[in-house]
Design a protein around this nucleic acid. Structure first.
Length: 212
DNA sequence: TGTCCGATTGGT
DNA sequence: CCAATCGGACAG
C-alpha cells in the first residue's frame, strides 16, 4: 500500500480536480483481492447553480441522496442509477460546498482477473470503461457512499504517467440540464494509448486543455 | 401514496 | 432502438 493521496489534493475546486485526477490510480482492497485502474475520464459536477448536478438548487444537506456531496473533499459519493448501476464520485472542496468528480473510465491495472470475474467478461475494454462498469469491476457499491478516501480500503494514489493531451467536452447523459448541458466539464486523457479506454468517442475534437 | 424518470448498460 | 429495475424527488 503506497502513498495515498492526502486531504490537500481533494480540497481544490471540482473543475481543476477533475483535470488533475487524470492519471491518478483508483484502488479498492477487498477480501477477494485488490483491483485498481488509472483514471482516464472524469466529469466535474458543481453545486446549486449546476443543473446537471444532484446538488442543483441546494444550499445545505437535507436527508437526501446527494448529502455526501456536501462533505469535505476526500470523501466518496456513490449512488444508484437506473435501479441497476452505481456511479462513483470523488467529493472535492471544503465542507458544505457540494461538488464532486464523477469517475467515468479507468485503464485497468491490478486485479484484472478479479475484475473480469466481477464483470462477467474477459474483454479488457469492457471492464472499466463507463461509470457503472468500473464500479462493478472494483466492487464499489452504496456501502462506500460517504467513505473517507484518505483512510480505508478505497483510495487513490498518484500515478506514474502524466497526460500530454487532455480534452474538455460536454458531459455525457445530461441533456436534461438546460443551460448547463454544454459546459465543458468532461475531461478525457486523449493520448493515443489512452483513448481506447474511454467510455465513448464523442466530442474528442473539443477544447484542448492546457497541460501543467 | 402515486407517478415520473434517471450522471447506464447490454442485448435486439 | 429498447428493456431492466428501483429509489429519489416531487405533486397531491
Amino acid at each position: 500500500m503506497v502513498d495515498k493521496l492526502g486531504l490537500n489534493f481533494y480540497l481544490e475546486e471540482a473543475i481543476s480536480a477533475a483535470r488533475n485526477l487524470l492519471g491518478a490510480v483508483l484502488i479498492h482492497e477487498t477480501p477477494e483481492g485488490t483491483a485498481s485502474g488509472i483514471i482516464v475520464e472524469t466529469e466535474a459536477y458543481l453545486g446549486k447553480d449546476d443543473a446537471a448536478s444532484h446538488a442543483y438548487g441546494r444550499d445545505t444537506r437535507g436527508g437526501r441522496r446527494s448529502d455526501a456531496m456536501f462533505a469535505a473533499g476526500g470523501h466518496a459519493y456513490v449512488y444508484l442509477i437506473y435501479g441497476i448501476h452505481c456511479c462513483f464520485n470523488i467529493v472535492t472542496g471544503h465542507d458544505g460546498s457540494p461538488q464532486g468528480v464523477l469517475i467515468r473510465s479507468l485503464e485497468p491495472r491490478d486485479g484484472i482477473e478479479l475484475m473480469a470475474s466481477r464483470r462477467g467478461t474477459d474483454n479488457p475494454r469492457l471492464l472499466c470503461s463507463g461509470p457503472g462498469r468500473l464500479c462493478q469491476a472494483l466492487a464499489i457499491t452504496r456501502l462506500q457512499n460517504g467513505a473517507d478516501l484518505t483512510r480505508g480500503p478505497l483510495y487513490l494514489t498518484r500515478g506514474i504517467q502524466t497526460p500530454r493531451r487532455v480534452l474538455a467536452t460536454p458531459r455525457i447523459g445530461v441533456d436534461y440540464a438546460g443551460g448547463s448541458r454544454e459546459l465543458p466539464y468532461r475531461f478525457v486523457w486523449a493520448d493515443p494509448d489512452k483513448i481506447r479506454w474511454l467510455s465513448g468517442r464523442k466530442g474528442l475534437r473539443e477544447t484542448p486543455v492546457k497541460q501543467d
